[in-house]
Write a protein that binds this DNA or RNA. Structure first.
Lengths: 327, 327
DNA sequence: TCCGCCAAGTGAAACGTTACACTACACAGC
DNA sequence: GCTGTGTAGTGTAACGTTTCACTTGGCGGA
């Protein structure tokens, strides 16, 4: 691989001058500038990132720390993050903690050792790994806000409102809640958004919390199959909703004929399952792209106040909710 | 961050000695060794990877180049790769080409610039990016073999055999094929495995090729809905199968009552859709782990012949295939 | 006693960049 | 003719590691 020194020798100038040209610094005559650029192209010069990193402390790589690629929300996100990062010349280093806090901690320490320039992070729970304390690079949060950090997420209160309105519009008066985990901020926001926006006449017959991974607890199965008064089940995300449909169908309960269901996220699978899932769409790709954008601003030393970017969500009506006849 | 020099000063030995201790080299007395280790722990020393990379040319990072995270096969794979890599102290740098060859090329050049120690790659098509020519680090292929490279994949011939046997066992005599893309080696292997293993009395009524992403072409939809003689549809992967089920159900054709369907891969969704999908299971996580293992062997300069690791597959019988009454 | 050998440890030069302090020269202003 | 200023370009010291060649002292063998 050609080095700065090679270029310098080829053109007949000093290494410093070559470096100055390549970094667009002033005080280089235009002919020399041209000759250096030509030589660089001809010799196929690519800066040695390791050397650069060592000198400057910047690596042009960012970390992406996710809880679980098995939940289809995250691959979609990762894809968006990787693609927009790459078009900005940034490499994305992936950590999948598989839902384990120590995985998250390991991941962060690996990323720190590699001196990534920043981390885009969807936190597992409320407690941050200890190693994060002495991580001086920018961190942008996805989906789950936390004091003192930039975050980009969707307007979950709006999602809750949309769901509540829709429920009454479709004639439902009693719902069951299959919420996401209590300890996850965004799960609470979804739940509270709905609870708060719901008019008095819309009752919550029961509520049980499950993981975002869609694994149904015994309690959840019981709630689903006991056939209490709820005619509509509001799920914390699409994965939960789809698992619930599956569970119901195994117990001979039909959706939406016997009970209606909604999801949240609008992952691709909502269109592929039967019945197609009515859900709240969040702009996953836009969220990923925005996170990279915020990251880049931070990396170039932008504003020091923490910012939150909130995207609108929308109701996507499909086949999993039945309109109830007026009584 | 503490450096070797700091440690040397703290212990009162030379930098070289500290380096020797940390790299487990001989010719260091056991007391000095202990004192260095103690100091390293106390000062929280972590080697500066950039400096190390610059000296040695190794980065302790590997690339993972995938076609499309949106296909659930790949997140599962990525998760396995990342986790086993991390437990070997390797960082995984992700590239998602989104099915575009130029994305693949960009990705490789980014990885090369970052001097990753190797790449685990699931190639998009038969042609490799030009930049790959002068990539001197090890490459191990996943799922799609190619002359001169290590590869790890499943035994697709076996899968085809299993499918063929199963089809006749269930009384089917005429099948339709919704194969994966012709240009992808592993798609051909699946198809050819089935075609080759099938007994004479099992007819192929029709065949159409579609993308592994499950997007059904007009031609595919026509084949599915025209209700020709086929009683069983063999799909190139689960995503295609699930899309097909969806498409059929939109046209009022029931699975498995009217027509049966099989998938391939055994992604998690096969259990969540209705009907649950009968499919061929491949050990996705094991494939990912094995790829990392091969990579590590190559990185430490192991055998120079290219090796292929083939995993057995298994039939997973669920609800999407109907047993036909004997005529 | 001397030689040679081995283990334990050291010094310094690289790796490819960047950044600082410097020189050389031209030209304007007085 | 001198000083001051600005432009174009150079030399060199870092950054933190690894590695090669080297020194030192102790000890066994003849």
């Amino acid at each position: 691989m050609a080095t700065l020194r090679d270029l310098a020798a080829a053109v007949g100038v000093s290494v410093t001058t070559v470096s100055n040209v390549l970094n667009g610094r002033p005080n280089v005559g235009s002919d020399i500038r041209k000759r250096v650029l030509r030589a660089a192209k001809k010799l196929g010069y690519r800066p040695n990132l390791a050397a650069q990193a060592m000198r400057t402390g910047r690596t042009r790589a960012i970390g992406l720390v996710l809880p679980d690629l098995t939940n289809p929300f995250f691959p979609e996100l990762a894809q968006a993050v990787e693609n927009t990062a790459r078009s900005a010349g940034l490499l994305v280093c992936l950590i999948d903690s598989q839902g384990k806090t120590e995985g998250e901690a390991d991941g962060f320490s690996l990323l720190m050792q590699h001196a990534v320039d920043g981390v885009i992070w969807c936190p597992l729970g409320p407690t941050a790994p200890a190693t994060l304390k002495n991580f001086s690079k920018p961190v942008v949060l996805i989906d789950r806000p936390r004091q003192g950090y930039d975050v980009v997420q969707s307007d979950y209160a709006m999602g809750g409102r949309l769901l509540a309105e829709y429920a009454v519009r479709m004639g439902h008066t009693s719902v069951g809640l299959l919420s996401g985990p209590e300890r996850i901020e965004s799960a609470r926001q979804r739940r509270d958004g709905f609870i708060g926006a719901r008019p008095r006449e819309l009752k919550v017959a029961w509520e049980v919390g499950v993981g975002f991974d869609g694994m149904l607890t015994r309690e959840a199965v019981a709630a689903l199959t006991r056939r209490r008064s709820a005619t509509l089940i509001i799920c914390g995300n699409d994965l939960i909703a789809i698992s619930a449909i599956r569970c119901l169908s195994e117990h001979g309960i039909r959706v939406p004929e016997d009970v209606s269901i909604t999801g949240f996220d609008n992952i691709r699978w909502t269109e592929l399952v039967t019945p197609r899932l009515t859900t709240i769409a969040q702009p996953i790709a836009a969220i990923g792209a925005k996170a990279v954008e915020l990251m880049r601003e931070r990396m170039s030393g932008e504003p020091l106040v923490s910012r939150r970017t909130i995207f609108d969500v929308a109701l996507v009506e499909r086949d999993s909710v039945r309109r109830l006849p007026p009584r």
